[in-house]
Amino acid sequence: MDKQRLWLNVGVAATLAVVYFAVDWLIKTGIITPFQQLNLYLIGINIILAVSLNLIVGFTGQLALGHAGFMAVGAYISAVLTTKIGIPFLPATLAGALAAALMGIIIGLPTLRLRGDYLAIATLGFGEIVRGILINIEYVGGAAGLIGIKQYCTWPWLFFWTLITVLFIKNFINSTHGRACIAIREDEIAAEAMGINTTKYKVLAFSIGAFFAGIAGAIYAHYFFLIQPNTFSILKSFDALLLVVFGGLGSLTGSIIAAVFVTLITALLQDLAQLRMVIYAVLLIIIMIFRPQGLLGTKEVTFEVLCKKMGGTTWHCSK
């Protein structure tokens, strides 16, 4: 069993390495067009957003609608640090993410006591407050936004942060801490009665989610080199929620797959933005009515599952 797992890990690592170097080569040789490259970044950003929001909504069961707010905090703090103070990209990103996580704790502590729908509205309000405050700060350009950010975020950074986000949250979920979060989603009163400090875990999930949303913001700022408060409106939070629901509330692989596909479809239907959103909205409603746990539900796409689906009993499928 352990040996099998080891081989599996080696296989996954090898695949990731191949993907990394292949894309790196494609970018360096210029085979990838700028438009394709842009979508590559959007895929990475969306994966980070979806996976981190899934931790809060899908795994811990807390409907938070302020993800764009955390993203904005990460984007603005990191961008101010690199452009105005001249701090390198990595510490600036971390500072942005930590600031977002801190915001998560500050906003989470009082509001996570609230029942589901009140939490949704409180976090939504938080996102709007962040946006509103940014509009009022002339130092960061007010409503016109912050310009002149250097394009520090290169493919290695994007790959690294996406990988770190997924690994971090996957390992968190598959631990006693992750089980505590899922228990809260399933039945908060029972979780509390079994000795889980529900407030602590809700705030923890919330701040981890906020941290990575902050990372996504930093990447966004340092690739698109212009950030405006209105980029991080409530509609951005809804976008992230769409990905989580499409992929499945409580499925990390689902979130990743949804982030990839939705980004690609968005790129293809570029000229039909409203039609696309209408389709997404209808899909969202249909999924909620017929499959409320999302397309993949809580299932994960693993190698074992794939093998079983293909009917194979190859060497690493047989336990």
């Binding site: 809804f238 209408v278 909205a281």
Partner: peptide, 27 residues
């Protein structure tokens, strides 16, 4: 159809309806 489902599902549906009408309106 969601009257007996969890709060989360109904809230997300409400967001879906809102997005549908916004973008339908834009179209």
């Amino acid at each position: 159809p969601l009257r007996n489902s969890g709060r989360l599902a109904v809230l997300i549906t409400a967001i879906g309806v809102s997005l549908l009408l916004q973008n339908g309106g834009l179209m």
